[in-house]
Each structure stands twice: as structure tokens, then as C-alpha cells.
């Protein structure tokens, strides 16, 4: 009966998943699905809303205004050399991208249980699509930031301070995406077992923002708390982003390497756990 060798079959289904498997060939086969999912995520988010895609801008703009009034005007917290508006806006768009990627990808299993129970496709497509659509949103917000930045350059006499750190931006983008994706898929896998995490993640991410320089420049953080900030892998990414555009923040290769290492570690760990859970998840819903 079994005249074929294993290699001659297109697909072998066995009980145990390998410890680590990343089937890039299969992901590539489903690339069309990935693109359609990205398109779906982007086009349906603000459907049914009156303001539609304006929300891409409203959210960072309103938060920046509130932050500027509360933290800079009222609480008189320092923001370094650049205007407070630019300081907050730059930190917020980077942080929002990370936190939204994490939140969205962490819902991979809970939100797609119905589809996962009915059809097979590489499950990783879902968090990848969320990360990419989140990145598109970030890119649009980056455009907004550049607009505001050029306003300050042209009409408020803000000196031009672009520097070589700009070349690091693509690297920053890659690692902040990997951080959000990695953390998100770990959490998505854990939430299938511990539903409590759903509640924890939502406000945990909000709290985590205070362990980044989004509100307070790293240079103004007292020494005894500095290590907490530096432990957060998003810190050096936000710092470098500001350094590149607005002569704030800092450029710290060691910190960046730490973030890069952290991102790769999270991603690896995420793949291992995700890989396990995607095979058993449907049985434990």
C-alpha cells in the first residue's frame, strides 16, 4: 500500500509539531491572501465612520494636543530643545504603532477562532497582515509628522537638524515591527490558555508607555529610574527616531543593538510558541 517515500508526498500530517518551523515557501504560496488581508484591514477599520480615514490623523493630533497642554504647559515637564508638539507627536506615532501592532496581533486566535476551525492556511498570515496594515497607518502618520515638522521649519524658524541617523530609519522600522509582532504572537498564544491576559494586555500596554521616553526625555529621567527605561526595547527606537528628525533624544548604538537583539529573541520565542499553539488551539477553544 505504502509504495511512496515520504519525500514524494506533498503533505504529511503527523501529531507533533516540530520545535521550530517557519515554512517560508508556504507563506509565499499564500502571499495573495496576505495582501488581501492587509487591504481588508485597512479598508474596513474606519468603514461605517463619518470621518473615515481622517481618524488616522485625529488620534495622534488630539493626543499630542492634550499631552502638550497637560504635560508641557501645566505640569511644565521638559521636552528638550524641540517644540513640545514635535516632541510628543514623534514619540506618539512610534509608540502607537508598537502598541497597536501588539494589541492587534495579540487577538490573532481569539478573533479568528471561527475561521481557524474551518479552513487551513498558515496562521502567521493573520498577525503579519495586522503588522503590515499597522505599518501603513504609521507611514501615513509619519507623513503628518513631516508636515508639522516642515511647518515649524518654514514658519517658526526651527533650524534644520537632519543627520546621518536618518539612514537608520529603515532599520528602526524593521525592529519596531518585529517587537510588536513578536510580543503580539507570544501574547496571542498565551491568551488561548489564559483568558485573563486579554484584560491585562489592554491596560498593560498603556502603562508600558510610561517606561518609554514618549512623555519625558531620557536625559531628564532620574538615575534611579533610568534602568527601567533602558530595559524597554522601544526606548532606544524612540530616542533614535527623535535624534534623526528633531535634535532631541539620543543616538546610542548599544541601546539599538539591545533593541535589535530583544526583537529577534521575541520573534524566535514567538514563533516557537505560536507554532505549538496553532496546532492545538482549535481543540481547546
Amino acid at each position: 500500500m505504502n509504495t511512496k517515500k515520504e519525500e514524494q508526498w506533498d503533505l504529511i500530517i503527523k501529531p507533533r509539531a516540530p520545535f521550530f518551523s517557519l515554512n517560508l515557501q508556504e507563506l509565499w504560496q499564500y502571499r495573495d491572501l496576505l495582501l488581501l488581508m492587509v487591504k481588508r484591514d485597512v479598508t474596513t477599520v474606519y468603514k461605517q465612520t463619518v470621518l473615515g480615514p481622517l481618524w488616522f490623523f485625529l488620534q495622534p493630533v488630539l493626543t499630542t494636543i492634550i499631552f502638550t497642554i497637560v504635560f508641557s504647559e501645566i505640569a511644565k515637564l521638559p521636552t528638550g530643545k524641540p517644540p513640545a508638539v514635535l516632541f510628543y507627536l514623534s514619540g506618539l506615532i512610534v509608540w502607537n504603532f508598537f502598541s497597536e501592532t501588539l494589541l492587534n496581533t495579540s487577538k490573532t486566535f481569539t478573533e479568528n477562532a471561527a475561521v481557524f476551525g474551518k479552513v487551513y492556511f498558515p496562521r502567521l498570515i493573520i498577525p503579519l497582515a495586522k503588522t503590515i496594515s499597522g505599518f501603513l497607518k504609521f507611514f501615513i502618520q509619519l507623513g503628518l509628522f513631516l508636515l508639522v515638522l516642515s511647518f515649524f521649519h518654514l514658519f517658526r524658524g526651527l533650524p534644520y537638524t537632519f543627520n546621518a541617523a536618518l539612514f537608520f530609519l529603515p532599520v528602526l522600522f524593521v525592529f519596531m515591527s518585529l517587537l510588536g509582532l513578536g510580543a503580539g504572537i507570544i501574547l496571542s498564544s498565551l491568551t488561548t490558555k489564559y483568558r485573563d491576559l486579554v484584560f491585562l494586555i489592554a491596560f498593560g500596554v498603556q502603562l508600558l508607555m510610561y517606561a518609554t521616553p514618549v512623555i519625558i526625555p531620557l536625559a531628564d529621567v532620574p538615575d534611579q529610574y533610568l534602568w527601567i527605561m533602558k530595559l524597554n526595547p522601544m526606548t532606544s527606537i524612540i530616542e533614535t527616531f527623535r535624534y534623526a528628525f528633531i535634535d532631541a533624544g539620543s543616538f546610542d548604538l548599544l541601546g539599538l543593538s539591545y533593541s535589535a537583539g530583544f526583537a529577534l529573541f521575541l520573534l524566535f520565542l514567538g514563533m516557537v510558541i505560536f507554532n505549538r499553539v496553532e496546532k492545538t488551539f482549535i481543540d481547546t477553544v
Binding site: I13, T44, V119, Y120, K279
Partner: peptide
Amino acid sequence: QVTFPSAGKVSLTGRVSSLLEIGTGFHSDL
């Protein structure tokens, strides 16, 4: 491949499509 066997093995040749449900993944806004 929606769920995995606890024991045993399945070998398949050719592309597999499964229809356990109709209209899987339909999005009502699209």
C-alpha cells in the same frame, strides 16, 4: 489540517481544499 491527529499519520498528494463551511471568512462590510 484544521486539527491534528493524536496518533497516526496522513499522507496526501496534490493541492488540498477543504470545504467544511460555506463562505468562511466573509466580511460583511466588503
